[in-house]
């Protein structure tokens, strides 16, 4: 497509954005790996109580006995 005037060019640009925006709707959203790692770390911090001093409370557990190896 050959653009001759500024207004045409502008129209083309707008059209392009529109097409791109429309295209984005159907684009597959890829798995956000970095965000997932961040989310995982936040949950791991909570579950394992990693933030705030003592890493793991030495609570008695069923069947806990020091490794013999």
């Amino acid at each position: 497509m050959k653009l001759r005037t500024n207004s045409h060019t502008l129209l083309g640009a707008l059209l392009g954005v529109a097409v791109m925006a429309a295209g984005c709707v159907t684009i597959n959203i890829y798995f956000p790996a970095a965000a997932a790692e961040k989310a995982a770390d936040r949950i791991i911090d909570e579950v394992w109580q990693l933030k705030g001093g003592v890493p793991t409370p030495p609570a008695p557990a069923p069947g806990a006995k020091p490794a013999e190896k």
């Binding site: 949950i43 909570e46 579950v47 394992w48 109580q49 793991t56 409370p57 030495p58 609570a59 008695p60 557990a61 069923p62 069947g63 806990a64 006995k65 020091p66 490794a67 190896k69």
Partner: peptide
């Protein structure tokens, strides 16, 4: 789920440490 896992971790931690 996170709360339930956090509660269980107290029992699991010594098992991780012992290698069980």
């Amino acid at each position: 789920i996170q709360g339930s896992m956090q509660k269980r971790h107290g029992e699991l931690a010594p098992l991780y440490a012992s290698g069980a």
